[in-house]
Structures are given as structure tokens and as C-alpha cells.
Design a protein around this nucleic acid. Structure first.
Length: 848
RNA sequence: GCGAAAGUGGCGGAAUUGGCAGACGCGCCAGACUUAGGAUCUGGUACCGAAAGGUGUGGGGGUUCGAGUCCCCCCUUUCGCACCA
């Protein structure tokens, strides 16, 4: 140990030693209990940013804590190295995406090592390497075998800037998740993965993880899956044998249906209009809506528009004829693409009916259960619709509904759906908002889709033994809408695995979210070339105990990975339903945008980035990490400030100096047990054990900011203890050693390098990490507050305090409160009405 | 528009979950040591008041001996969803 704290020197020394001793490499098997600590793997953009620093500092603190507690910890890292930025670099600057990516990885790996994150580098993976994406292709083929991967033409989300398709999850809100560009719609033939087959499980299994995941993430997931219960009902077209099937969640309102409304894309439309004089008009109208949508005009923006087709449909319940309309507010890809319009009981239908003067008929009346039971509603009452100013969307009691009149909505919903089924014109139904996952990307830098098209045999999967289908070294990066792979004849041209005839490969690549859906299983067995991972090894390590990352993936990555896990379960690779037990969504690191009052995520384009390398160079990795964890609760936004970090350096330096001053006196083994005769020594010991208890419990909830605060408090008390090492009594030495050693150990998750250095300085060889748990355990007797200071109130106002032992009885407290001089002065002859004694907390004397 | 969460010093934030509000840190003020201080150390720092004392957790009401914490109304901010039938 040097006299002075030189962060860079200490950090280099320990990073080197950790590398040599391979202390962070996880062993399988190992008798100790396992802990899988995982952070979302980074995209190798080239530079670490403060968001990464925060993410990995949180994970590393937990990994250290668990190691010190004696767990066998797995803490791996890898690279989400397929994706757009590499290809954009190729398009703009002519560099090869592979070279660009490898260089970025090399640089960022160096940055992570300089930050001193305790990763098991022997398990490092990268998605763009054939030994990784081979297994993406393997999974794809497994999905294909099971009918979970399929190809269809559909209207897909298209990012005009990146010239590629996006999944629904990646274009939520009509915005490209990566570049923020407004997405358009295009009709394309694409590969889809049948995530909708797992919709119900994605919902139901939330119960298994609700204790460990943030509520808001689960809410977003369940909203995204969007289950709704209702019924299909067929409206027969008058004069013909065609039927229009609608989906409704409110079959109880069907007597109020005054139109059937179709989406402009409805497939029956052109058939139905055969021979109609309105055919051309309607088709023009439908085309107009489609055009708007292609241009990215969101449904929901702008006014509702519709056109009467002139057709009539028959309401199967009432037998009534209602007009058939086409309108822009009906989504083709939800339900059946057709609805019954019930203006009286649906806001959107109400608005539509008002605009086009469609009749509005009330068929549900507001009613409480009490009213209904007391006094049946008169179902023959006249039409009240004329007065309706807005729709009534609540459940109630049915009126104007034939034989169903008088029933409660809740009851009618079930009975009417069952009746529809019995009569053959409908059935109860459940629909979901989630759509199948479109995974084709018209890009080069991804895992090729392992499929071959043969003129004789049609679509043929690449045989497993021919995997991986390897990306060619390069291609021409034009940035147009077709995959650059299509322009590489050596790649495209192949022979049919079945008949050997000349055939062509699929030239699209897979969405990068395929790579990240299962990567944390690959860490377990990263060099396996026979299977994605060994199921026995997986059983020992998974599920992930703690996952840490940003909440921008609340629906994208996290829903895909849950889906993928369920698929792997069905393949027999894993035995559980949910991959992650506990999830932490850390807050963003933001900085003020220059010249404004706005706080935004740090980014190059905004010019508000903070370079972690500069921080580390100026203050050291330890101080940088500790400050990031101390500055705000982990889930909060962290508004960057340059000044606060100096406090962290100051603290580390002070601790270091104190250890240096004491090291000689402390390093000679452990002294006799303290007798606690000196009150200050006993107070220090109490503080030590209270701090241990506090930090240990804070860690369970990842309250890292208050853990650091508690360390500072302990240090402050140590400073106040202020004994001279040379003259200190054995008792004092004992208290100081106990406090300092606990402080150093508990500092390790936040500032591991300097903690190791100080631990060594205190005379311990071999480093902080050992087989045996080293994390201190609080003595409950000492951790407890020794004396209680009980406030005494008179009529609710604080008048005095009394110091008592924790075992004090209620009666004793009452007596001593009433005997207190200041209390008696308050009472001053007035009547004592009652004395409230809250054990261990407070006494309140109530006087008249 | 719908839904959810949150409002505590100059700032980030604490508060054993109904019991001394403001821990810890930043910043600021004063002092010490210094050729110097943007280094270090010591002390102070919610607000009003000279003091005694009083007032304080977005605003208003309520429950309670006691409310930052629980209930009702309002305001503000942030986030999510946005024709999902």
C-alpha cells in the first residue's frame, strides 16, 4: 500500500491480478449455491457510454456481493453484434461490417476491462460469429419443423430510413425503435414466427414472475398481448349467401347495432360489390385509405371517414336489416376486420354515427344491482336515444332487446354468445392484440435464413448438418430495399438439398432480436458445437437470478425472450416457463442538452455525451462506479453532474488514508474480544453491526444508493472515534479492526480495486474472494438499537424524552413518563384523561 | 382522450412503512493551513425570527393522541397506450 491513493496504479494492479488468477471464472459444477447475474448484452457501437457504465456497475455490485456471500456466481458478457449500425457504416463509409464490428468489440472490451467489471471473459460470445448464429439458424429450422415459422404476404412495417421491415414491437407507436423514423406500411412476403401461439402463456405465466419483475413492465407486456374476450357473430348479407363475421366484446349491445362496418382491406369487399353501381366509388375510397396508411398516417389520427356500400346485412338476433359500410377506423388485422356498429354504446361508433346520421338506439340502461333487484326495468319503454349526448359504454341492464330485456350485461354476454353458437351464427371467442413476429430483414448484417428455393421441390430447409449458412465476406451495400445478399451470386446460387438441382438461397437475414432471445443460455456452454447448449449445464445455472437492463426493452426483447424460452421448453431444452426470476429496469443516464433546460439520454448527435474513459482517467474506475451507484436509486433517471463525482473520490481517499494509518497496528492477527468498557468503542461496534445489517438487506432490494450512504456513515463514526493507532488500547484496536474490515469488504461491490488494495494492506493475502463467505454477518444483539429514546408527548406535543432499555415494560414507561419533571409541569394540576403507550415507540399523555 | 406512477431544502435524495422530517452526498457560507487554492482540514447550512419561539413534505379537506406516509377532492409533472370493436 502506498501512502497516497493513486487510483490508476491500484486499478491496473488488481485488474492484472484478477486476470492472472481467473477469480471471476465460474466453475461448473461447484458445491456452492449458484447465482446467475446477467446484464443486457451491449450492441458494439464502438464506445461505452454512461448508460453502460451504470448498467454494468449495478450488475457488478450484485455479483461481488453474492460472491462475497459465498455464492458460485456466473457473470458473463457478450456482444449483440448483428444489426443496422454496422451496415449503415458500410453504406456510408464503405467499411466492411465485420471489420467495423470486430474493431468496436476490441475497443469496448478494453473499456470494460479498464472499468474493472468482474466478467467471466472465458464465456464471451458475439452474435455475428458463425459458431453463434449457427444456432439461430438451428432454432429457426426447429420452428419451421413445428409450424412455428411460416412465410406469408402481409402488410408490414417499413422503416424508410433503414430500408427494412420492422416487427410490430419494433415499431410501436408507428415509430422505428432505433432511429425514430415514422414507419410506413408495405405489402411484402415475409417470414413470421408464431408468437401468437404463445399469447395465452405469455399472459398466464406472468403470475410466476410478478414477484420479481417491475409491475410496469408486466403491465406493458400484458397490454401488448392484449387479450379480449367476446364473441364472433355472423351477419348474413341480404340477397345472397355471403356472411360477414364480426368480433365484439359487447354482444349484449347487439340490438343496438345500426350498421355493419368493414375495414377497407376486408377480403370480402370486392366479392360483395360485384355488379354494384357503387363498386368504383368504394374501391377508390378503400384505395385512399390504404394510401394514407402506406404513407404512415396512423389509424386514429384524423377524422373518421366512411362510405355506405348500399348492401344490407341481417342482424341474427333481431332479424333487422342494417346497412353495410366501409370505414377508415376499422383495423383489418384485429378481430375479423369487421364490426357491428353500436353507436349508443361505443364511443367510436357514436362519433361515426353522428357524422353520417346513422340511427342511435339505446339498448343498455344504467342500473345498479340494487335497483335491478328491487324494481325490474320496463323493457317496453320507448326509444330514449333521441336525448343521448354521448355513448353509454358501461355495463347495465338490457332494454329494447327482445327476450333478453331486463338481463344484466354480465349475464347477457355469456348467454347470448352461447345462444349464437347453439343457433349456428356465432360463438364465444378470444382475440389478442399481439401479432406474429416478422423476422425477415432485407439486410446483409444478420443471420441468413436457412432456407433454399428449388424450382422442383419448392421451399426446402437447409439440412442441419449443412449449418451454419455462412455470410459471404462482403457484398455491395447500396442501402436499397433489397437484401445485399441477393447481389452475391456465390451466396445465392446453391443446389437443392433434395434433388441437387440448381437452386437459390433465401437472401433475407433474421431480426437481431432472434440473437438476443436466447444468448444467455449460450453463455453456459459457449463452445459447444453439437448443440446450442448442454441441457444438464443449463439446468444447473438457469433461470437467471437477476437480470438488469433498460426498460426500453419492456416489450421487445423481454417478450421475445419469454416466447423463446417457452419454445425451448417445448423442445425439451429447459424445464421451466420463465427465463428470468428477477428483473431490474435501471433508469436512464441523462445530461442537459446544451443551451436548454431539457434533460435527455446522452447521445452523440445531441452533443451531451459524457465519455466514461475521461471519467476513469480523471477520477478512477472505482470512484466513477461508486458515484454512479450513489447518485440516485438504480431505477431513477440519473441526471449527470460533473461535481458530485469528486465526493466519491474524497470518500475513497479518506478511507484509504485511514486504512494506511492503521494498517501496522491492525495487521497482526485479531486481538482479544472486546470488553466494551469504553462507551465510544461500544458505540463504534454497534454502528458497525447496524451498518452490516442495513447494507445486507439493502442489497436484497438493490438499494445501492443507501448502501453507499451507510458506508459513509460508518466511516464518519470511525473518524469521530479518532483514536491514535500508536496509543490505542486493545479494546479500541478490536473495535477499529472490526469496523475497518467490514467497511473494506462492504466497499468491494462499489469500489473493488481499492477494496482489494486495502484488504491486502490490512494484512490479508490472497485477495477478497475466497471459497468461504467473507461478507460480514451482523450480530443481532449489537445491531439492535441498544437504548431506546422514547419521546413523551402531552396532548400530542413533544415535551420530553426518556432513555430506557429495550426490555422496558409498558407500565414502567407510563410511570416514568408521568414522573418526568417537564411533563408534570405541563400537567400542572389538570386532569389526566388517558396515557397512550406505544411500546418501544412513544408515550402520549392526554390532559383536559 | 384513456391508464399508471410520482410531487420532500439550492440539487441528487433519506425517513425502521403511522412515531424526533431532511440521513448520506453535492453545492453554498465561515474559519484554519497555505505563495496560491478549483487541494486538504474544522464548523455551519429547511424556512421566518435578534431571540424565545413559530412554520414547514404541491394545494384544500378528513381519519388519528400523532400523517411525508392512510382516505376524499383539486393542481402539476413524468411515463405508457392511443380508433384493439
Amino acid at each position: 500500500m502506498d501512502e497516497k491513493y493513486f487510483p490508476e496504479q491500484i486499478e491496473t494492479k488488481w485488474q492484472q491480478r484478477w486476470g492472472e488468477t481467473r477469480v471471476f471464472e465460474a466453475k461448473t459444477p461447484d458445491p456452492r449455491e449458484k447465482f446467475y447475474c446477467l446484464e443486457m448484452l451491449p450492441y458494439p457501437s464502438g464506445f461505452l457510454h454512461m448508460g453502460h457504465v451504470r448498467n454494468y456497475s449495478i450488475g457488478d455490485a450484485l455479483a461481488w456481493f453474492k460472491r462475497l456471500q459465498g455464492f458460485n456466481v456466473l457473470h458473463p458478457i457478450g456482444w449483440d453484434s448483428f444489426g443496422q449500425p454496422a451496415e449503415q457504416a458500410a453504406i456510408k463509409r464503405g467499411v466492411n461490417p465485420r471489420d467495423w464490428t470486430e474493431e468496436n468489440i476490441a475497443h469496448m472490451r478494453g473499456q470494460l476491462q479498464r472499468l474493472g467489471v468482474s466478467y467471466d471473459w472465458s464465456r464471451e460470445i458475439a452474435a455475428h460469429r458463425p459458431d453463434y448464429y449457427k444456432w439461430d439458424q438451428w432454432f429457426f429450422l426447429k420452428m419451421l419443423e413445428r409450424g412455428l415459422a411460416y412465410k406469408k404476404v402481409s402488410q408490414v412495417n417499413w422503416c424508410p430510413k433503414e430500408e427494412t421491415v420492422l416487427s410490430n414491437e419494433q415499431s410501436s407507436g408507428g415509430i422505428c425503435w432505433r432511429c425514430g423514423t415514422q414507419v410506413e406500411k408495405r405489402d411484402l412476403e415475409q417470414w413470421f414466427l408464431r408468437i401468437t401461439d404463445y399469447a395465452e402463456q405469455l399472459l398466464v405465466d406472468i403470475k410466476q414472475i410478478e414477484a420479481g419483475w417491475p409491475e410496469k413492465v408486466l403491465k406493458r407486456q400484458s397490454d401488448w398481448v392484449g387479450r379480449s374476450e367476446g364473441a364472433f357473430v355472423d351477419f348474413a348479407i341480404k340477397d345472397g349467401d355471403k356472411k360477414i363475421r364480426v368480433f365484439t366484446t359487447r354482444i349484449d349491445t347487439i340490438y343496438g347495432a345500426t350498421a355493419v362496418v368493414l375495414s377497407a382491406e376486408h377480403p370480402l369487399l370486392s366479392e360483395l360489390l360485384e355488379g354494384s353501381v357503387l363498386k368504383a366509388d368504394i374501391e377508390n375510397f378503400a384505395q385512399k385509405i390504404k394510401t394514407q396508411r402506406t404513407a404512415g398516417v396512423e389509424i386514429g389520427e384524423g377524422e373518421k371517414e366512411g362510405l355506405n356500400t348500399g348492401l344490407l346485412a341481417i342482424n341474427p338476433f333481431s332479424g333487422e336489416n342494417v346497412p353495410v359500410w366501409v370505414a377508415n377506423y376499422i383495423l383489418m388485422d384485429y378481430g375479423t376486420g369487421a364490426v357491428m356498429s353500436v353507436p349508443a354504446h361505443d364511443e367510436r361508433d357514436f362519433e361515426f354515427a353522428q357524422k353520417y346520421s346513422l340511427p342511435i338506439r339505446q339498448v343498455v340502461a344504467p342500473a345498479s344491482h340494487d335497483q335491478l333487484l328491487a324494481e325490474p326495468i320496463d323493457t317496453t319503454a320507448g326509444d330514449a336515444s333521441a336525448e343521448m349526448k354521448h355513448s353509454f359504454i358501461d355495463y347495465g341492464v338490457l332494454i329494447n332487446s327482445g327476450e333478453w330485456g331486463g338481463k344484466l350485461s354480465e349475464v347477457a354476454l355469456k348467454e347470448m354468445a352461447a345462444y349464437a353458437k347453439e343457433k349456428g351464427f356465432g360463438e364465444p371467442a378470444v382475440t389478442y392484440r399481439i401479432r406474429d413476429w416478422g423476422v425477415s430483414r432485407q439486410r446483409f448484417w444478420g443471420a441468413p435464413i436457412p432456407v433454399i428455393y428449388c424450382p422442383n421441390c419448392g421451399m426446402v430447409p437447409v439440412p442441419y448438418e449443412q449449418l451454419p449458412v455462412v455470410l459471404p465476406p462482403t457484398a455491395e451495400f447500396t442501402g436499397t430495399g433489397e437484401s445485399p445478399l441477393a447481389g452475391v451470386p456465390e451466396f445465392v446460387n446453391t443446389s437443392c438439398p433434395k434433388c441437387d438441382a440448381p437452386a437459390r438461397r433465401d437472401t433475407d437475414t433474421m431480426d437481431t432480436f432472434v440473437d438476443s432471445s436466447w444468448y444467455f443460455f449460450r453463455y453456459l456452454d459457449p463452445h459447444n458445437d453439437a448443440e446450442p447448449f448442454d441441457t444438464g449445464i443449463a439446468k444447473q445455472w438457469t433461470p437467471v437470478d437477476q437480470y438488469i437492463g433498460g426498460d426500453s426493452h419492456a416489450v421487445m426483447h423481454l417478450i421475445y425472450t419469454r416466447f423463446w424460452t417457452k419454445f425451448m421448453r417445448d423442445l425439451g431444452l429447459v424445464q421451466f416457463d420463465e427465463p428470468v426470476k428477477r428483473l431490474l429496469t435501471q433508469g436512464m443516464v441523462t445530461n442537459r442538452v446544451e443551451g436548454t433546460d431539457e434533460w435527455k439520454a446522452m447521445s452523440k448527435s445531441l452533443g451531451n455525451g459524457v465519455d466514461p474513459d475521461e471519467m476513469i482517467a480523471a477520477f478512477g474506475a472505482d470512484a466513477t462506479r461508486m458515484f454512479v451507484l450513489f447518485a440516485a436509486p438504480v431505477e431513477n433517471e440519473l441526471r449527470w453532474s460533473e461535481t458530485g463525482i469528486e465526493g466519491a473520490v474524497r470518500f475513497l481517499r479518506r478511507v484509504y488514508t485511514m486504512v494506511w494509518r492503521w494498517q501496522e497496528r491492525l495487521s497482526g492477527g485479531s486481538g482479544p474480544i472486546a470488553t466494551d468498557s469504553r462507551p465510544e468503542a461500544r458505540a463504534l461496534r454497534r454502528k458497525t453491526h447496524q451498518t452490516i445489517a442495513k447494507i445486507t438487506s439493502d442489497f436484497e432490494q438493490l438499494h445501492l444508493n443507501t448502501s453507499v450512504a451507510a458506508l459513509m456513515e460508518l466511516f464518519n463514526q470511525l473518524s469521530e472515534f479518532n483514536a491514535d493507532p500508536a496509543k490505542a488500547s486493545e479494546e479500541d484496536v478490536f473495535a477499529v479492526r472490526e469496523a475497518l474490515e467490514a467497511l473494506v469488504i462492504m466497499l468491494a461491490p462499489f469500489a473493488p480495486h481499492v477494496a482489494e488494495e486495502m484488504w491486502e494492506g490490512l494484512g490479508h493475502a490472497g485477495g477478497l474472494l475466497s471459497e468461504a463467505p467473507r461478507w460480514p454477518v451482523a450480530d443481532p444483539e449489537l445491531a439492535r438499537r441498544e437504548e431506546l429514546e422514547i419521546p413523551i408527548q402531552v396532548n400530542g406535543k413533544l415535551r420530553s424524552r426518556v432513555i430506557v432499555s429495550p426490555e422496558v415494560s409498558e407500565e414502567e414507561l407510563r410511570t416514568s413518563a408521568l414522573a418526568d419533571e417537564r411533563v408534570r409541569a405541563q400537567i400542572n394540576g389538570r386532569e389526566v384523561l388517558k396515557v397512550i403507550v406505544v411500546p418501544r415507540r412513544l408515550v402520549n399523555v392526554v390532559i383536559r
